[in-house]
Design a protein around this nucleic acid. Structure first.
Length: 308
DNA sequence: CTCGATCCCTGGACGC
DNA sequence: TGCGTCCAGGGATCGA
């Protein structure tokens, strides 16, 4: 399940492998995970000018190989466009890619047969094909121009690696939802998923069902610090390979070896040896140490819902 | 606002 | 070997 570190790993791989390549043509198989598949024909002829990560999204920034301006664009517009482009502020369009649970994207030599679940393939000008493969199709792709992209970006939460202590504490402590739900909410912090939520809560010794507003300033500060440490460390280790995550070179990440809570139900806590437990919080499995991460006093609305 | 439930989808685990 | 069943889970959506 690609979260921030895994997406960052893939983005860095794509920056090395496809930056500057021109898309010659597009092939689409199943398209039910694409916002606007008809628009994809516009990708032909465009150049991949940048690859960026935005939360769990990847953005392939595109510049038009041909004249950028619309019909009738005069030279002033052309100069403006060029200057803006040089500053890296504007692109003709962007291809938004979300890997969902099982999505993979990688350049592949054209002679290699398609994987069973390859749904999109971009033929590049160097003979390779940038292929998107996703068995469960929980991912998402969209061809976005400036305004659509702006709308997409507007609702996103803070980047957990960039957010300051004050803003982090405010985003958490102004909410009555449980901290696990807040960490998973992409409109609060963009990029955090189940693994790194559990890992950071374990490190901060905070129970996943604690209410955001009831965290102390000190707890919020600790949580931010360990979350950033964990994400940065995971990026260095090229992410966690839980199911089938592979980086751009087909190599698994290493960070799963450092998991302290996620997936460790019944195994001893690395701090106190108490068996790790699993609960459902915010509709997701949550792994935690019942001793190190003491449960909050029960609210009437959250009585035991985990039995089934 | 916050919650749980439901759906999307397929592969893998498990039971027989 | 081969079924059937259950489950995982990011995110959208809906009703409570």
């Amino acid at each position: 399940m690609p979260e921030l570190p895994e997406v960052e790993t893939i983005v860095r791989g794509l920056q090395k492998s496809v930056l500057g390549r021109k898309i010659l043509s597009v092939w689409i198989g199943k398209s039910d995970f694409i916002d606007n598949p008809a628009e994809f024909s516009r990708l032909s002829g465009q150049k991949i000018a940048a690859v960026e990560r935005f939360g769990k999204f990847m953005l392939l920034r595109l510049t038009n190989g041909e004249a950028v301006g619309m019909a009738g664009a005069d030279s002033v517009d052309a100069v403006t466009e060029s200057a803006a482009s040089a500053r890296g502020e504007e692109y003709a369009a962007s291809l938004l890619v979300h890997l969902g649970m099982t999505g993979q994207i990688a350049p592949t030599p054209a002679h290699i047969p398609f994987d069973k679940h390859t749904h999109v393939s971009f033929t590049l000008d160097d003979g390779r094909e940038l292929r998107y493969t996703d068995p469960r199709r929980f991912g998402r792709m969209a061809y976005l121009t400036g305004e659509l992209l702006a709308k997409e970006v507007a609702g996103a939460g803070a980047d957990p690696l960039e957010v300051g202590a004050a803003e982090f504490a405010d985003r958490v402590r102004s909410r009555n939802a449980r901290i696990k739900a807040l960490l998973l909410d992409q409109s609060v912090f963009r990029g955090v998923g189940n693994i790194y939520a559990d890992e950071s809560l374990w490190r901060a010794k905070i129970h996943p069902a604690r209410v955001g507003a009831k965290l102390s300033l000190k707890e919020a500060g600790t949580l931010r610090r360990v979350l950033q440490e964990i994400l940065n460390r995971a990026i260095i280790m090229r992410g966690s390979s839980i199911s089938d995550f592979l980086d751009a070179n087909g190599e698994p990440g290493e960070y799963q070896r450092h998991h302290r809570a996620y997936g460790r139900e019944g195994k001893p806590c690395y701090r106190c040896r108490t068996p790790i437990r699993r609960v459902i919080v915010a509709g997701r499995s949550g792994y935690f140490c019942p001793k190190c991460q003491p449960a909050p006093r029960q609210r009437k609305s959250q009585r035991r819902k985990t039995a089934r």
